[in-house]
Computed example of a mutant assay.
Amino acid sequence: MTTALITGASAGIGAAFAQELASRGMNLVLVARSQNKLEDLARSLRSQYRVKVDVIAQDLTASNAATTIFETTQAKNCTIDLLINNAGTGDYGDFAERDRAFQLQIIQLNVAAFVDLTHQFLQPMRQRRSGSIINLASVAAFQSMPYFSIYAATKAFILSFSEALWAENRSYGVHVLAVCPGSAGKQFFQQAGFPPTLVELSSVVETSAEVVVRDALNALEKRHSIVIPGNLGNQILATLPRFIPRDWVASFWKLVLGAQR
C-alpha cells in the first residue's frame, strides 16, 4: 500500500487531499502546526477507511523543519510515494508598509521549506525510480499582483520550479505536477487580511477544495506538468496575462486590489 505525505493537512485543500487519498486506500502522513486538528482528522480517516495515518505536528517556518519531517519518516521506516506540498500563506497590503519579519516568514514557508522538502524526498524517489510530487501553486503565479506581491511571487517560483522538475525527473520515473487553483474558499483571504469587499470578490474564481483535488489527481494520472482546476474564470486569469503587456497587468491588479485601501 502506498503512502502520501501532505503538508498543510489540517484544513482546506490539504484535508481534502487526505480524505480523497484515504478513500482510495492510501496510507498518510499528515503535517501541519496544529497537533489537535491533525489528530482529529487522523482518527476520522482511520475509522472511515482503515488506513494507517501518522501525524507530524511541525511549523514549517521553523529552522530545519523539512529535515525533522524527513528524518521522522525515516525513523518510522515510512516510504513516501506521493509528496503533496500544500502548506502556504499570504499577506494583503503595501509591501513597504507590511511587517518585514512576516514577509520573510511567508517566503520561508512558501519557498524555502517547500524546496527543502522537495529535495529531501525527491532523492529516494529517484533511487527507487518511482514517486510523485504535487506542488500547490496558484493562478496568481501567472501575474504580478500589487498588494499581494509576496504571495504571487512565491507562487510564480513554485510554478516555474515544478515545471523544471517535471522535465528533469521523467526519465527517473518520478512525476512532478504544479496545481494552480483560484480561490478555494474565503477563509484564506480573510486570514491574509483582505478587505471584506475583496473577500467577496474572490468567489468569482472560487473552486471547492474537492474539485481542486479531483482535477489534480486526474492530471497526475495523465502525467501532465500543470493543471488549472475549476471554472473558466481560472483559465482566463492564467491565460490572458500572456497576451497583455506585463505593466498593464500589474496596473490592472493595482486598481482592483488597491481599490479598498
Rank of each mutant, 00 (worst) to 15 (best):
residue 30 L to T: 10
residue 245 P to K: 05
residue 218 N to P: 00
residue 203 S to H: 07
residue 127 Q to M: 15
residue 64 N to T: 07
residue 45 L to E: 05
residue 261 R to M: 13
residue 58 Q to P: 14
residue 83 L to H: 10
residue 116 D to Q: 14
residue 118 T to C: 12
residue 242 R to V: 03
residue 240 L to R: 06
residue 91 D to I: 13
residue 22 A to E: 05
residue 82 L to C: 12
residue 180 C to M: 01
residue 179 V to F: 00
residue 254 K to D: 08
residue 205 V to R: 04
residue 190 Q to N: 10
residue 162 S to R: 01
residue 243 F to N: 06
residue 118 T to Q: 11
residue 161 F to E: 00
residue 123 Q to N: 15
residue 48 Q to C: 08
residue 136 L to M: 05
residue 24 R to V: 04
residue 211 V to T: 06
residue 73 T to R: 11
residue 100 R to I: 14
residue 249 V to D: 06
residue 104 L to Y: 10
residue 139 V to F: 00
residue 164 A to I: 11
residue 80 I to W: 05
residue 14 G to R: 08
residue 226 I to T: 05
residue 150 I to V: 07
residue 69 I to H: 14
residue 49 Y to G: 06
residue 199 V to H: 06
residue 176 V to R: 03
residue 214 R to V: 01
residue 179 V to P: 01
residue 150 I to F: 00
residue 22 A to N: 05
residue 174 V to K: 02
residue 59 D to K: 05
residue 19 Q to K: 14
residue 22 A to D: 04
residue 101 A to P: 03
residue 147 Y to T: 08
residue 52 K to S: 10
residue 62 A to S: 13
residue 210 E to F: 09
residue 87 A to R: 04
residue 126 R to Y: 08
residue 63 S to P: 10
residue 174 V to C: 05
residue 70 F to S: 13
residue 250 A to R: 03
residue 198 L to N: 07
residue 16 A to I: 09
residue 185 G to S: 08
residue 48 Q to H: 10
residue 71 E to A: 13
residue 98 R to N: 13
residue 106 I to F: 01
residue 260 Q to S: 14
residue 248 W to S: 06
residue 255 L to C: 08
residue 240 L to E: 06
residue 90 G to L: 05
residue 219 A to Y: 01
residue 51 V to K: 06
residue 239 T to P: 07
residue 129 R to C: 07
residue 122 L to V: 15
residue 79 T to M: 15
residue 139 V to R: 00
residue 11 A to Q: 13
residue 259 A to D: 13
residue 222 K to T: 11
residue 252 F to C: 03
residue 256 V to Q: 09
residue 67 T to H: 11
residue 95 F to W: 09
residue 44 S to G: 15
residue 226 I to H: 07
residue 125 M to H: 05
residue 196 P to H: 13
residue 145 M to I: 04
residue 48 Q to V: 12
residue 193 G to F: 03
residue 228 I to V: 05
residue 82 L to R: 12
residue 196 P to E: 09
residue 107 I to A: 02
residue 231 N to P: 13
residue 207 T to K: 01
residue 244 I to N: 09
residue 132 S to L: 09
residue 63 S to M: 14
residue 129 R to G: 04
residue 229 P to M: 01
residue 18 A to N: 08
residue 224 H to S: 08
residue 77 N to D: 12
residue 260 Q to W: 14
residue 9 A to F: 03
residue 53 V to I: 04
residue 23 S to D: 12
residue 224 H to C: 08
residue 9 A to P: 09
residue 239 T to R: 09
residue 151 Y to W: 01
residue 229 P to F: 00
residue 47 S to Y: 08
residue 41 L to Q: 11
residue 237 L to C: 08
residue 68 T to I: 15
residue 123 Q to I: 15
residue 46 R to W: 04
residue 200 E to F: 07
residue 57 A to L: 07
residue 186 K to T: 10
residue 4 A to C: 06
residue 108 Q to G: 12
residue 110 N to R: 03
residue 43 R to F: 15
residue 13 I to Y: 00
residue 49 Y to P: 02
residue 53 V to L: 01
residue 139 V to K: 00
residue 3 T to C: 03
residue 137 A to G: 02
residue 103 Q to T: 04
residue 35 Q to M: 12
residue 173 G to D: 07
residue 160 S to K: 11
